[in-house]
């Protein structure tokens, strides 16, 4: 009898404490601006029927209570607090896409020495982003005919894709294409030698 009474007391105490706790930790909606490479580049505006706020500084946050509470004045949080709430979400964030430019010898799909050095770097970026989508777009300068340049651009793109495979890259999907001499990095007249236009644009997502 005594035991049962004690148990009931403990149960009701537990109930009381849990009500108290849930009252204290009733979660509010919150939006927090994060830096990119150490600085904030843009802003987020938060608007509802009750008002609006703008976030434009690192770690600045706005809270909203309930479904349509007024957005509170921005408060700057410390990184640890943000990590406590959002650590799991931030860990699930994929690596952002990266782009590279590779350059070629004149009228050739052979890479220039500096660009060759980038191949292992790009292969690593593909590996880190598994399952990665690789896109290689080949370009030429304006020497020669449009048709010839289209084929040269395609050869450059396919060569880069094959070289990356030799460096151990195994993207889940690959797209190779050519823009020929139609899309210059450096604007030139027709029939102009321009090393900076003999390139392939590599994007990894």
């Amino acid at each position: 009898m005594k035991g049962a009474h004690f148990r009931r007391l403990v149960l009701s105490l537990c109930f009381f404490v849990s009500v108290l706790l849930s009252g204290c930790t009733a979660q509010k909606s919150i939006i927090i601006l994060l830096p990119e490479d150490g600085k904030v580049s843009g802003e987020v505006t938060i608007v509802n029927d009750q008002g609006s706020q703008v976030l434009n500084k690192s770690w600045q946050s706005v809270e909203i209570s309930g479904t349509q509470g007024r957005p509170a004045s921005p408060i700057v949080l410390d990184e640890t607090t943000v990590q406590d709430i959002f650590g799991g979400v931030m860990a699930a964030m994929p690596l952002p896409p990266v782009n590279y430019l590779l350059y070629f010898k004149h009228d050739s799909a052979e890479l220039l020495p500096d660009s060759k050095l980038l191949l292992p770097v790009i292969a690593k970026a593909i590996k880190e982003r598994h399952p990665a989508q690789l896109s290689v777009v080949g370009h030429t300068d304006t020497m020669g005919t449009a048709e010839y340049n289209y084929q040269l651009g395609l050869l450059r793109a396919r060569t880069v894709s094959a070289l990356l495979a030799l460096h151990g890259a195994a993207p889940a999907g690959t797209e190779t294409s050519s823009r020929g001499s139609s899309d210059h990095l450096v604007k030139t007249p027709d029939q102009t030698l321009e090393p900076r236009n003999r390139r392939a644009e590599v994007s990894i997502r």
Partner: peptide, 14 residues
Amino acid sequence: VATLGVRGTRFVAR
């Protein structure tokens, strides 16, 4: 709870 207008940036939200 609100509409967020995003201009080229990074954020988290609950």
